[in-house]
Amino acid sequence: MTLGREEFDRDLGQLEAQVVLLGALVESSVLTSLLALKARDLELATRVIADDDLIDDKRHEIEMSCAETLRREAPVAGDLRRILTILQLAGELERIGDYAEGIAKITHLLSDKPLPKEIVDIPRMGDRAVSMLKHSLEAFLTRDPEKSEATAMGVGPHDQAVDSMYAVIQAELMELMRKDPENVETGTYLMWAAHNVERIADRATNIAERVVFQATGKLVRVGGDDDDAESPR
């Protein structure tokens, strides 16, 4: 006999919709922060900083809803993995929002100071990280476990590509700073910005790993090994 779990399924669907909404807010925040950095648009950067509160609130809301659902339904098996994944994703997305806010703050620090070179590579790396985020969330919404796993696993090579781009940017900025001490301040800020983008990619990879867990029950490593580094923001 089929039982009435419609209400529970509806709750799970609503939680997923909330995660997708949070994902959209975060993606927009990251793109805007990169645009602000590239265009050196302080007004746009200020908007990103202000929007971070919305992101934090949304994460909190999702966590509270998950806690309520866990308390009421005591889910097991696939249902439990789904709620655990939603909880984890809300946390990862909120942190990505923090990195976007960090880039926006760096834009303020840079202000109108002369730069050692035009900002091109960091936004390019950022586009790759945003693409990873999109793929991870797409995998999250894919109902078929095999397809979901395959899409999530596909995020891994992009993470390695972002790590490589970051290494090149780091080396280049180091060289510019070595050549001219005048570049040290702005070079350091740009290094921080690049690091934030690299961390966004790591968080997108974490999301992909959680999605594989939701689909298969297995915890696997999707990306590279260097996702524990912390940075000043």
Binding site: M1, T2, R5, V76, A77, G78, L80, R81, T216
Partner: peptide, 19 residues
């Protein structure tokens, strides 16, 4: 059984979708 059941009927039962 309650984490990653192998049979879909087990999953349906433990998650309360059949009973």
């Amino acid at each position: 059984i309650f984490g990653t059941p192998r049979d879909q009927r087990t999953e349906a039962y433990v998650t309360g979708r059949i009973g």
